[in-house]
Design a protein around this nucleic acid. Structure first.
Lengths: 193, 193
DNA sequence: AAATAGTCTTGATTAAAATCAATGAAACGG
DNA sequence: CCGTTTCATTGATTTTAATCAAGACTATTT
């Protein structure tokens, strides 16, 4: 249940046995069935979730009920409504499971304790957020500067595992397109070969 | 020359006199005239720049020479090509001054030393990146989910100081629009009152 | 196995934004 | 001060993507 977690962390910082024990004591395992909510818009987000297994998405819900996907998360990733988590304001995002999931939850209290007690935890979090920031900046760059086809190809090149596991209309939503438009973009790409 | 810097940091972490002296010893002041480059695409980014005074922008340059603005930075903000800074890969962004600027540069070596020597520095950096991440996520959300008018109004509400100091066509670029479209969006908003 | 919900594609039409082109106003440099 | 680059607006046209609508194919449920 904790394999992916410790493996992932140790790619960035090294943990003693003791560190591992402390960390583990702060984690709450949780299973989620496909389509179940982890967080609903309006609730306060009480945790950051580490994905041991499965796929989730976070999204906003527009006025006409249309969903806009902000993030996918697969094994080894963190997902949360970070703003709500840090400020205790109501969440603007909804998070649910695209496949059955196994998660490790880090509560607010756990997060704060760990930041103080475990310097490697702060370092790990810093590195995580840094790479999340860089990835987000690249995504934004491609949204405002690249034509649709390149944007889609960039996405598939970067996240082939997500493309395989997530329905296309969700990828369209992630890219800010309608499913019809994405379908046509794909057609254009494949017929050109 | 260092007032804004220490004031800004102390909003998030507290610094002893000694901390301040150490920090100061690692900073390199630099002045930049309007239109001068701080970083050019293709060069390796050797620093993170703190803005004591002035306005800068980072942007990518498309195939037809069209600029896409990724970020503005005013007093109290950091600006860099973080990916290039951390990996020493060639920068994908260009950074230049929109007004005359006074900057404090943190070199790669300084950054690494400070992370080790000064725990408050790591904490400050973590908090900085966290809020940058949250801001970026909000921006992305508005790009993929809000109609143009609301996007522009959201921007002006959030960054009134930037709107005042930066030409409109740059704001259009930041929003991923042509200047003509932004002009029409603005007209629509004002005539409606 | 049949029914149902979910998914992807395709076509026709409408709506939105980019592009092309021109003008006037403001800011800037010599 | 004048000439020049920069900037913002407006109109006409083209391009692009959204919307509306239908059909086929797949997986899931009963």
């Amino acid at each position: 249940m904790y394999e992916v977690f410790f493996e992932t962390i140790q790619k960035q910082v090294s943990l003693t046995k003791k560190d591992q024990a402390i960390l583990k004591s702060y984690l709450t395992p949780k299973k989620l069935r496909k389509k179940q909510y982890l967080l609903q818009e309006g609730d306060v987000c009480k945790f950051v979730a580490f994905v041991e297994k499965g796929v989730l998405r976070s999204y906003t819900i527009g006025e006409k009920g249309n969903e806009h996907i902000i993030q996918f998360a697969i094994e080894g990733w963190l997902i949360s409504d970070l703003y709500s988590f840090l400020t205790a304001e109501p969440a603007t995002y909804t998070i649910d499971a695209i496949e059955d999931c196994e998660l490790l939850l880090i509560s607010k209290g756990a997060h704060e304790d760990l930041l103080h007690k475990l310097p490697v935890y702060e370092t790990w979090i810093r590195l995580q957020i840094t790479s999340a920031y860089i990835a987000l900046q690249k995504r934004l760059t491609s949204v405002i500067s690249l034509p649709l086809e390149e944007r889609y190809q960039g996405f598939t090149a970067l996240y082939p595992h997500i493309v395989q596991r997530v329905p296309q209309h969700m990828i369209a939503s992630y890219m800010g397109l309608t499913p019809e438009t994405l379908s046509r973009v794909r057609k254009k790409i494949t017929t050109r070969r």
